[in-house]
Design a protein around this nucleic acid. Sequence first.
RNA 1: GUGGCCAUAGCUCAGUUGGCAGAGCACGAGGUUGUGAUCCUCGGGGUCGCGGGUUCAAGUCCCGUUGGUCACCCCA
Length: 461
Amino acid sequence: MSSHTFQAPTGTRDFYPADAALRRFIIESWRSAAIRHGFEEVDGPTFEHLDLYTVKSGEGIVSELFSFTRVGGEKTYALRPEFTPTLARLYAAKANALPRPTKWFCTPTFFRAEKPQRGRLREFLQWNVDLLGDPSPAADAEVIAACVTLFESLGFTPADLRVKVNHRAALANWFVSRGIPESEHAKLLVLLDQRAKMPAGEFAAKLALYNFTAEQAEVFKKGIIRVTLPERAGEVQVMGQTVERGMLGPAAGSDAFDLSFFSEAVQPLALEFAAAGVLDWVDFDLSIVRGLAYYTGMVFEVHEATGAERAVAGGGRYDNLVELFGGPPTPAVGMGMGDVVLSLVMKDKGLLPDAGRLMELSGQRPDVFVVSNGSPEAEARVRPTVAALRRLGLHARHTYKATRNVGKLLKEAGDARARYAVIIENSESAQLKDLTGGEQRAVRLDELTAGYPTIMQGRGA
RNA sequence: GUGGCCAUAGCUCAGUUGGCAGAGCACGAGGUUGUGAUCCUCGGGGUCGCGGGUUCAAGUCCCGUUGGUCACCCCA
């Protein structure tokens, strides 16, 4: 590379005004959704001791981290690749003083030393929502409800995004019921997680090693099952086909659709999703495994409805993790959502606000744009008027162009999405024009600079 | 970390068998209609990602490198 050219490091992004406005909009959307659901904002350091990450994930994780030692120092640090260890550390340190449940969220930057590809960068934002101290399915539903609130606020519908829910314990119970020892469960979960990456025949053959039939392999491959609510309790549908309770037991002969364990674990969740008003967004999906890591109960991922793009969000219940980081035994459920895939899906669905709208949504819309009619007398009043309006707390702008053509300057004001234009006529009077509606009226300059908000009857106009 | 494809103006791209670096949009200046439009004229801008090589001559062909992108690995 030549010495006079610098590029941003691999997998990082530059944020020009339009990009920064989008980022601000996404962060504010995240914050708003979390706060509406009663979560409180927290944060931690951008880097932690490397040990904090190897405790949970093993030494293998190190190659995925940006880690470093200070020159002359001995301690090894790592830029944070996720928030959960920090969250557990924060919670463990003050567990006795914290309310139950504790509901926290954050929207920080994370770093992973992976090769970038679509939807995955080395520096990104991630919204984390966690609810600690409540083991109930209602807590699971609360986290997902915050997620759904976000989607709704961005303009998504259940036809755009699906929340795919599974239950670790249900799968484990089912495996046990089929005589599969617990020592084999991890390998089996990995196999299920990889189902999409191999031909159906190969997948079925590998499942057969665990005594699953080809029919059951098909069920796993398709994933989605429908769990009905209590008025029809006892019914389970597989791939749209209703299966009677009597058919579910292995004794019934056809145990291809023996999903009773799954059904029992998931029915309480379904009730809570219904109570939270998010059931329309949810599919119960046997194929969602979420790596292995630390999940102990409900797990979920949010995907674009047709399977385009990577997962928009993911999470689940991790009842043993706080203890692992030195805290008291604490049931917990949480989720993470990155800005990269979210932005891609918003773009795919045509839900990205245009540049002007983003400036407005990110709090950068000018209140007033001050121009003169071109006379020297009026021109002299532009800067003092702008200064006075700014002193009143308003976002006031003026042109930097050489032209004094009123039409061109009003176009500039309109392009900037200013709410009002002030056209100064002489040292005493001006026209005040509402750029939204187009009406304008004469005002005295001294009156304007003394009480613009009053004249406008508030800024919301 | 492995492999495929890609790289020309701020953006989207054109550039012929190797022969003077281009368009639209955007940006800036001026003009016209004293009020956001339309229109007209002009202008700034690119070591063709970077470095080598072949050639009289390279944006174009070859090698390397950096970055992007897609798939694999991984996905906390």
